[in-house]
Every structure is written in C-alpha cells, then in structure tokens.
Design a binder for these strands. Sequence first.
RNA 1: GCGCCCUUAGCUCAGUUGGAUAGAGCAUCGGUUUUCUAAACCGAGGGUCGUAGGUUCGAAUCCUUCAGGGCGCGCCA
Length: 527
Amino acid sequence: MSSNISMILAKLNKKDPNKLSLNIMDLLKKNITDFKKVEIAGPGFININLSNKALISIINKIFKEGKSFGSYKAKYSYNIEFVSANPTGPMHVGHSRGAIYGDVLSNLLKFNGNKVIKEYYINDYGNQINNFVKSVFLRIREIKYNESFVNEKELYPGDYIIEIANKILSKSKLKFNSLKDNYNFLTKESLKYSMEMIKSDLKKLGISHDSFISEKSIVNSKTVIKAINQLKRSNYVEEGFLEPPKGIKNEDWKKTKRLIFKSTLFGDDTNRALQKNDGSWTYFANDLAYHFNKVSRNYDRLINILGADHTGYIRRIEGAVKALSKNKQILHCKVCQLVKLYKDGSPFKMSKRSGDFISVNDLLNEVNKDSIRFMMLNRSNDVELEFDFDKVLEKSKDNPVFYVQYCHARIQSIFRTIDFKSKKNKQVKIGDINFNKYEKEILKKVFEWPKIIKIASNKYEPHRIPFYLYELATLFHSYWSKGNEDEKFKFIKKGNIDKSKLLMMQLVLIVLQNGMKILNVSLPNKM
RNA sequence: GCGCCCUUAGCUCAGUUGGAUAGAGCAUCGGUUUUCUAAACCGAGGGUCGUAGGUUCGAAUCCUUCAGGGCGCGCCA
C-alpha cells in the first residue's frame, strides 16, 4: 500500500514532503500495530506493508460484502436516455455501441445503490416517418399490384420494408389504393413492427428499457406550448429573426419572424429556431417539450447518450434543461464516437438509407452477445472504435472476453477438482496463512476494485471495468503458469490446496462475478 | 469560419480525477505442454507521450500556442 498524503499536505502547507512523511511515519508506528513495515520512498511516498492481521480483516470484509463488494452507497435517481434509434428500421452496429454503453452505465449506477430509469425516446413523428410509411406503402403496392418500387432519394429501400409490407398484408384486407386514405393505419402498423424489430435486437444484446416515450404523444399532449410558455416567462424564448446557417446551404431557408430559444446564453453558437417556415414546431421544440416532461419527473440526474453526429446538439439541449428546471437539474450528454466497421481489410460504410448497412441482427447471427458487449466497451467512449468484423468472427484469442472468462473457468476447474463448495458466513482466522508475492500482487489488484468502480461511476466511464478485469485475469493466468515451471506453485498438491490460494481464488471470483454482472457478460464454468 | 473529440511503441489502445523507472494486446524474434484447462505462460527488441511555451516539489494528465485526423455546424430528425 502506498500513500501520497505528504505531497498533498506539502502543497497545502508549503512544506517539504519528505519531512512531513517522517512525522507521519512516526505517528503511524506509535499508534497502529497493523503494519508490518512502513517506509518512505521517492519524493515522499509512504509505503506501508500490511500485517497478516490487517490483511485478514480486509479479506473478511470482502467476503461479508460479497456481491456488493466494490459498491459504495449512493442513492440518487437517474434517468438515462439511450439508443433512441429512429423507428424506421432495425438497429445497426453503430447504435449498439451507445446501447451497450448506456446499459452498462445503468448497471454500474444501480450497483452503487442508485435508482435508474432506462429510457428510450421514440422519434415517431416528422418527415422521416412520412417517408418510412410511404416506403411501406409503395412496397405493398409492389407486392399486391406488381408496381415496381422506384427508389427515390428520401425513401427506405431496405429488405426489412418488404417484410413489414408482407406482415401488414397478411393481416389486412384493405385495398391500399391511396397512401392518404390508409395513412393512419399504415403508420400505426409500420411503427409497431419497426419497434418490435428494435426491441428484439435490444433483447438479443441483453438490453431492456424501463420506459418508452413517444415523440408523437409529447406533441399531442401540448407539452410543447407549456414548455415554451414557461421559457417565455423566464425570458429564454422570444420572437425574432435568425441569421442564415453557416455550415451547409439550405435553399428552403427564409428570413421570417418566429419563436427562437436563446441557446447562446448557454454557450451555443447561435440561437435556435423553435418553429419552421410554416409555423409548425421543429424537432428541437418537441425535444424541449420532452425534456420538460423529464424535468417534471424530478430525477436527481439526467443523462443522454448520443452518437457522435449529435455533438452539435449538446449545448442546446443541456441549456434547455437548465432553463426549464430553473437551474435545478443538470443534463449530462455523453457522446459515443463512431464505430468503424472493417471487413475484408477495408472500411465498410454504413448507410441506413441505402439499406446495405450491417444490422445488429446480422452481427448477432455470427458473433455472440458476450463478445459484442465486451468489444464495444473495450474502448473509451470518447474515441473511435474499430470493429473488425473478421477478427470478431474468428472467435480467437484476440478476443479479450475469452481471456477473462477463461480465468473464471480455471478457478471453477480447481474447485471442481477438489470438490470445493463456497460456504456462507465464512470467517477467516489468522493461522497458517502466508501469501507469497504473486498472491499478494493479485490481492492488491482485488483491493483496487472499489476504486475502479468509483472512478468509472463518477466519470461515467464503464470501459474501465473490462480493462480492469483483463488486468486481473492477466495476473491470475501468469501465476497459474508458474506451476508449469515449478511444482511448488501448483495449486493442487496431492489433492490438497493451500488455504491462502483458496482464499485468493475466492476473492478473484467475487470480483469477476461482480464485474461481469455489471457488464452483463456470462461467465461459463467450463470452456 | 466556428464548436466538440482525438494525437502515447511498427499497428490498435490503456493510463488511478497531478505522483515513483510511461503500460497492455497485436505484429516481429526466441523459449515453455507426460498438466490443476497451452483458448495459457515466459523472455527480447521497440517511446522526445503531435509541436512550442506556462503552472510546481512533480505533467501523458491542468492552462495557452500551433500542426495533423475525425465528427458536427438546418427552418432534417
């Protein structure tokens, strides 16, 4: 164990850290007997070797905590919105990253005792939906009346549209003469089937949401007006004109008076329109209303998981939450960078519109859920993730999930061999326990687990968990193999096992199980 | 033009909210299997942490400059 307390105190008091360390060391030696050795190293670190007595008391504490080892008591309520993929088709590989990130972040926060609502915002309103429904209609015409499907720019050509068309046809005897006459029916049915597809994809990835909120229902409930009225009163919304957009040309742009949200007050580049040319609400206006609804549900903390292509949206919506909650609630937007898909050694472009994207379902047909989950978290969410289709399909040693699972399988293998069963309420006593240096390394790693959880939770960085588990597994595999070189490091000798080894393995097991439970990745007993 | 993210070994990336001699995997080279699971392990080579400054006992980490890459910049959703 090591402490940098002297350096911190030195900074505060402007004193020499080495001198402070000497003083602290004296105090420690006088007052505490749990230390075997205390010494000063480097610029003023205090290194402490724990006595067996102290070690045992820590181990007993871990056994007592068991499934909650690593967690700390927090009791905030969270709303985490993630996935929220448009209901115009199945999920693609890019969506799965945010989905898994959000899901594991939720598990992590729950592990610490927080209450978490996992929410999905269904964008079942607007032009995309019109185009989606039109696509379904045209496919129906194609099937029923042999009219060829002309692929216009705005339409969705993917095969799943044909599937939806077939499903609708098999249940309905309507003639489908005009889109207009069948519009409401088609919209309802198409959305039902596309959401079924998405939910099924999510389920296969091990993800389920607690709450689904429909954009259309927000619009119909007039929440938009309520939200905007409140913002008008606090002077965040006004009628006015906006400058022409700087980024891309838009021929439809017109300078007319409309309601705008003053997002520049929150660091945005420009104020944002709440109304379109024709006076109808923009997507942002509806989203504002949705977040008004979220704010009214009184969570302690709001989190949105967004794709990289929505970074420009963050200032606006975070500002909106501040304005709507009168600075009482804070929305944190976390961004997942792109997933770059590689196949046959070259980049594989995804496009939802063209219909040639790799869907989550395609992926799941070839790679198991555990590997996908682990791989998607094996990067910080802030960096692009290279997903090598071929490599993941190989199911080889390149895949780190196997490595961690294998560690678990080896421990279980030992337990099987000696017919060991974990007992409840075990109390370890000081006796013939004597950890060697390899075991101490592993214990040290196990003791780090709560710190990993704390950082991962505070920073919303669940990727730290797979990295940590991988490191723990490395130490274990390394120690295991010592037995190949030297008989005395064999775990089992003549059917017996050292008490210290048994303890060490039980501790590793606790951490592996707690960690993988948060990741929702399985731990097979045999591989 | 503006905003956000990134730049660490040949490649892909970690890096403890500022700590000790910067770490893994892959790739390269060389070793280890009558076994408690070799889906594993051990060893070797490989670094000016993009650049230039600053903050301090101490910087890959914080601040500023510049360069390179990605994403975005709608009255689409």
